[in-house]
Simulated assay, not measured.
Amino acid sequence: MSDELTVDGGHGRNASRLNWLRAGVLGANDGIISTAGLVLGVAGATSAIGPILTAGIAGLVAGAVSMALGEYVSVSSQRDAERALIAQERTELRDDPDGELAELTAIYRSKGITPETARAVALELTANDAVAAHLDAELGLDPDALTNPVHAAISSGIAFTAGAILPLAAVTLAPASVRVAVTFVAVLVALALTGRISATLGGSGRRRAVLRLVVGGALAMAVTYGIGQLVGISGI
């Protein structure tokens, strides 16, 4: 084990990895539900595979691009805010180092550490990396572990695409007579699996997470399929 430890003991990086995994699962869920609703809606209006496949592919591409762009904008805004906080902390340390040292000492004293030990810890951390010490203690930020917006965008797009492929493949490969039923079941199984994974990552109850996703997904598919049938019958 290395003798050199980061200020947060690696917890910031672990939390970042956990958030990435959770975001991937949520992106896959979005891909599954939105694409399933789209293809089943079209399947409710027509049994021809051409329009169903076209709608599914269009939904997959549009959804993946939208997810990637949204994640890029969101993470870029977050990263800009974090960089502003880092710059502000650097300025404060430059302009008032004694005041910042007292502030860091007070933070550790508030955690139950004795005044002498708190000051010794603050002095040692400040000597090692004053900016990192203050960012961790005050804001819970790790300046070396900021999320990359490009990576986040690519990950979100891939996660959405991976989720969207399942209902698209099910509705395309299943025989016409059982196309809707096969897609419905495949989607519910996939949602149950991703719900279980999401609950495990988040440390929450698995049954509730799975039930919430399965019921929500079933309602979404039933509604879109019903609307598709109404449109098909009316000939709109």
Rank of each mutant, 00 (worst) to 15 (best):
L38H: 03
A23N: 07
A170C: 08
R212T: 15
R212D: 12
A81M: 12
V131D: 00
T117E: 12
V180F: 10
R212C: 09
L135W: 06
L135R: 01
G12F: 07
S156T: 03
V121M: 15
V178F: 11
G228V: 12
G37I: 01
A81R: 10
L38S: 04
A81S: 11
N14T: 14
V178N: 11
L85Q: 13
I113P: 00
A64L: 07
N29D: 11
R90Y: 07
G70N: 03
I107S: 03
S47I: 04
T172W: 07
G140S: 03
V42T: 02
A130T: 02
L166T: 14
T194E: 05
T6S: 14
R196N: 06
D3E: 13
G205Y: 08
T147S: 11
A132H: 10
R212V: 15
P167Y: 07
L18G: 10
L173I: 13
Y225E: 02
V65W: 04
S110E: 13
S76K: 02
A84W: 09
T126D: 09
G27V: 07
V73N: 00
V171F: 04
N148G: 09
T35K: 09
R90S: 04
A87D: 10
A190V: 07
I158F: 12
A176P: 04
V231T: 07
D129M: 05
G12M: 02
A190G: 05
L18F: 03
V39G: 00
A120R: 09
A68C: 05
I236S: 13
T224K: 00
A218N: 05
L38Y: 01
K111R: 13
T126Y: 01
T114I: 02
G56L: 05
E82S: 06
D144H: 13
A132G: 12
G12C: 03
R207G: 15
I113L: 15
A133D: 07
R90T: 06
L168D: 07
I158E: 08
V187K: 04
V231A: 13
I233T: 14
D144T: 15
A28C: 12
N19K: 07
Q88N: 13
I113T: 12
V75F: 01
Y72E: 03
A164N: 09
R83F: 13
Q78F: 05
R208A: 11
I233A: 14
S16K: 08
G228K: 01
F184G: 03
L213Q: 14
G228H: 06
N29Q: 14
S2D: 13
L213T: 06
G217L: 04
M67I: 12
A68L: 03
D30G: 08
T172Y: 06
V187M: 11
G216K: 02
I86Y: 01
L188C: 10
A137G: 08
R22E: 12
L211T: 14
S204C: 01
G56T: 07
H11F: 13
G99V: 10
G44Y: 00
L123D: 15
I33N: 11
G99T: 06
D30M: 08
